[in-house]
């Protein structure tokens, strides 16, 4: 199956994408993740101001058949959450790269280096489907 993997993002092994803009970034889940979860029914997000270290769980995404932790790809402080997802969780399925979940202020930009680029993530996704 061919998943949408935009070139301008970086990716975590736990299937979150991160879009960096200066010392801030937005985080969401990938097309692969939404496809495997099936119909998303709820997204639980943290409070603005909460801080998380790289890899920590910042929320939960629920479908009718599964619930998965949302893990932060790099450490930072939450400066905004996408409140629209509360009423329209289906946006995560419809447009996973527009349905951002949190905006963070980065702690340490060098943590980005360990993330995958689009090519590596495409291979990583396809390998898991085989």
């Amino acid at each position: 199956m061919a998943y949408n993997v935009p070139d301008d993002l970086r990716y975590a092994e736990s299937d979150e994408w991160i879009k960096v803009e200066g010392d801030e970034a937005t985080v969401g889940i990938t097309d692969y993740a939404q496809d495997h979860l099936s119909d998303v029914v709820y997204v639980e997000l943290p409070d603005v101001g909460a801080t998380f270290a790289k890899g920590e769980s910042f929320g939960v995404v629920e479908s009718v058949k599964a619930a998965a932790d949302l893990n932060i790809p790099v450490g930072g402080e939450v400066i905004a959450i996408n409140e629209a997802l509360e009423d329209e969780p289906e946006k995560v399925n419809e447009a996973p790269y527009e349905a951002w979940m949190i905006r963070i202020k980065l702690n340490d930009a060098s943590e980005l280096d360990a993330l995958m680029d689009a090519e590596a993530y495409t291979t990583y996704s396809n390998d898991r489907d085989d």
Partner: peptide, 9 residues
């Protein structure tokens, strides 16, 4: 068959 997605959303 029932619409479980609708029930949960």
């Amino acid at each position: 068959r029932l619409d479980e997605v609708r029930a949960a959303r």
